[in-house]
């Protein structure tokens, strides 16, 4: 290379943006050309220093508590009312929600379907108590953990409803057991995370009672 490197070439060389073959040509030229080297050296020194700047820094305080509160608010903002009975068709339609919103909503659906499932199974008292616990699943932590149990619960309810509608009493009875067990598991998760939440505790007691009644019904 006999011509001097252009200003753009020098910047591209210093920033590692030239194609490999051109990088080699430019390096060879700089070895031989003092004029270009005099222009390139400060650029190369600057880019080398910039590349070594630290890429991690500490804020003055811990940002996590405030962030955690914001995330909890985010979760609450997408939550569904918990005392409505949600049909399976409506539940399917909700799949069109953004994935994270749908999953947060699923936590509330657990308890909503608990009410509907209770009515269908004839455990009216339990259903009424479930419906009264109208402030459950309000915290992000609870919602997310309960969501896992909720996925199982929704499946159990769907199975149970299908069996009940099909007139298969044995399958319906099994579905009822599975539904109550899943509701118990979900409420237990909620209580573990929200030990100071009276609604959560009330719900857990309700689910425990429903589970005990169900067990006593066993032959």
């Amino acid at each position: 290379m006999t011509m001097h490197l252009s200003d753009d070439d020098l910047h591209d060389f210093a920033g590692g943006e030239l194609p490999p073959a051109r990088m080699e040509e430019a390096a060879a030229h700089l070895d031989a050309c003092a004029a270009c080297r005099a222009t390139a050296e400060p650029l190369i020194a600057l880019t080398a220093r910039l590349a070594t700047l630290p890429r991690a820094g500490d804020p003055a305080g811990d940002l996590w508590p405030a962030l955690h509160a914001r995330l909890a608010a985010e979760t609450r903002a997408v939550q569904l009312p918990v005392t409505r009975v949600v049909s399976l068709d409506e539940h399917r339609r909700r799949r069109a929600l953004p994935a994270w919103a749908a999953h947060a909503a699923a936590a509330a659906v657990v308890f909503t379907l608990g009410f509907g499932g209770g009515r269908l199974t004839g455990t009216g008292e339990a259903a009424a108590m479930l419906a009264a616990a109208d402030t459950v699943a309000t915290a992000m932590d609870a919602a997310l953990r309960v969501q896992r149990a909720g996925t199982e619960y929704v499946a159990a309810v769907a199975h149970f409803v299908a069996a009940a509608r099909g007139g298969d009493s044995l399958a319906a009875a099994e579905g009822r057991e599975a539904t109550i067990a899943a509701c118990y598991g979900a409420s237990r998760e909620l209580t573990r995370l929200r030990t100071d939440d009276s609604s959560a505790v009330r719900l857990f007691r309700t689910a425990s009672a429903a589970r005990a009644v169900s067990a006593s019904d066993q032959p």
């Binding site: 804020p59 003055a60 305080g61 940002l63 405030a66 962030l67 914001r70 995330l71 985010e74 953004p98 994935a99 994270w100 999953h103």
Partner: peptide, 17 residues
């Protein structure tokens, strides 16, 4: 600091995708 929080709210929202 505000933006750092905002970034992680977005990460929270978008992480499932």
């Amino acid at each position: 600091e505000d933006l750092t929080q905002e970034v992680f709210v977005r990460v929270w929202q978008k992480l499932p995708t």
